[in-house]
């Protein structure tokens, strides 16, 4: 079901599957520039999220990327850069 672009909806789905959602946080809201920490996701949740993105999109993300990309926008941009750089084998 993967497409070549990684969207905010994809990220929302993967976050929910891999780590759930904090009470009091509306993932459906405008979260693009909210820090993951403020959304209730600690480093392990991001590690799990990164690993799910890697599996689903058949890419390998740098470990630094997951610590550097501290908002959904930063992570989505970085993932899309990877997808463009290394088109997935069909």
């Amino acid at each position: 079901m993967t497409t070549h672009e990684f969207t905010l909806d994809d990220l929302r789905r993967i976050l929910l599957e891999g780590a759930g959602a904090d009470e009091g946080v509306d993932l459906e809201g405008d979260i693009l520039d909210v820090q993951f920490e403020a959304l209730g996701y600690e480093s392990l949740a991001l590690l799990e999220t990164g690993s799910r993105i890697e599996r689903e999109y058949a890419i390998v993300l740098d470990e630094d990327l997951l610590t550097d990309a501290d908002t959904p926008r930063a992570l989505i941009t970085a993932v899309n850069e990877h997808l463009l750089a290394a088109p997935r084998a069909a």
């Binding site: 929910l16 891999g18 759930g20 959602a21 904090d22 009470e23 799990e48």
Partner: peptide
Amino acid sequence: LPSRMLPQ
């Protein structure tokens, strides 16, 4: 339980 707890 909160959904954050379930996967972990």
